[in-house]
Design a protein around this nucleic acid. Structure first.
Lengths: 223, 223
DNA sequence: ATGAGATTATCGATCGCTAAGTCAGTAGTA
DNA sequence: TACTACTGACTTAGCGATCGATAATCTCAT
């Protein structure tokens, strides 16, 4: 009972004292909205992102929350339901980044490609734990995986449209659009693997690098 | 105690007819050398690549090999030692791909970049199971991880040298060499996530796409 | 008095791992 | 050739710990 697949987002103020939004011309501001996770999911995310789903026991989660194990099962049907809820939140947040960026990006394939790459890069850097969860999708049951994959693929579809558009308009010269899309998404999600918030460069600087690399990858000639 | 952390000499003489060993180092030819894994590691690889280290029990491995659990412990000190042996094999094979390709590539940064990307791409496509193991490195103990990371980083260092070289010679125009290197490696390793040997395109065709994308990414102007 | 939300206590299954025994093959000795 | 000793490669049996999950009960605020 009481399982909920919806993403409950309580719109409290995102108390993140982060660096100011990048004043990039014509690109909409992307505010990292705080992922509103209940204490159980927060603890689950912490452990799963660090050690993986199968290496995380419900007892670890309960201990971190400060409750006993059955309290977890009052809110979630089983352990898998917690992973599902986390992946739902994760993909929802990623898509909200992308939608918001594209909505502010106009119709030019160049600025749309930049916007999408910036969105995924900032999401990957600002929400590393959630973004890393993507690698835990193989622990989903078949139907849960199918649902997740559908949402996830929507981002790839958006990117594919943009690249095809750019090729059709003669802006991008890549002869391998499909693999270009895969490459761009792989490399941008790869940011989760090395980016550290206390590292030498900010997420915004990193995102700008990746925007340029992505434009170069599709062989945009006027860089 | 039969402990032995180094290259395990375990029954390898499984009479399996595999591809002929042809250590030919012709320019542009990368012979995928068969990964020589004993039956235990073969079974372990199969399960771990599919479901992950922590989701794989020693009983599953034993069952697939056709022996009992203690037989596994006669050859490997513990479960972790099997993962270590697999990751050792994996990184050794990857490096052998890269070394062989670079040895045949001359000194031109363009052809060296192509060679390295081709090597990693073909490794990722031809040995998906081994390549996917990279994501299991977080299940290593601290010192095992350090050893693995050192080997793994050597490939990144090689690529970084090549890119810096190309920039110094005015061949590559990228203003973000470090992130370019990360992006190229991420995207190329990402091939393991979608490539299927029975898919519409061969590993070699895919590798050629990625060579071009990588050259474009470092902003090589004469594509 | 009721129900949301937590607790105590415990279930059977499975986990990684090991002590001790079996047994075929090989080397050494006469 | 025949007997002995030894070793490598396994098996049977089972250890203690932990796993995900549940039944029954308790505690309050409404």
């Amino acid at each position: 009972m009481t399982n909920d697949t919806r993403t409950d987002s309580v719109p409290t103020a995102a108390g993140e004292a982060d660096t100011a939004q990048a004043p990039v011309a014509m690109a909409g501001t992307l505010e990292p909205e705080a992922a509103q996770l209940d204490p159980i999911l927060t603890a689950a995310l912490h452990h799963i992102a660090l050690h993986g789903y199968h290496a995380t026991s419900v007892r670890m989660i309960a201990r971190e929350v400060g409750v006993t194990v059955p309290a977890l099962y009052y809110h979630y049907e089983n352990k898998q339901a917690m992973l599902v809820a986390l992946l739902d939140s994760s993909v929802a947040l990623a898509i909200s980044y992308v939608e918001r960026a594209l909505a502010a990006a106009g119709t030019d394939p160049v600025s749309r490609l930049q916007a999408l790459v910036k969105a995924v890069a900032l999401y990957s850097a600002h929400h590393r734990d959630l973004a890393i969860l993507d690698s835990e999708r193989r622990s989903l049951t078949e139907e849960n995986l199918a649902r997740y994959a559908a949402h996830r693929d929507s981002i790839e579809s958006r990117l594919h449209e943009i690249v095809e558009d750019g090729v059709a308009q003669g802006l991008f010269a890549t002869p391998a659009a499909r693999n270009c899309v895969r490459a761009i998404l792989s490399m941008t999600q790869g940011i989760t693997g090395w980016f550290r918030p206390d590292g030498p460069r900010t997420a915004e600087e990193t995102a700008r690098d990746y925007e340029r690399i992505a434009l170069a990858a599709v062989e945009y000639r006027d860089l």
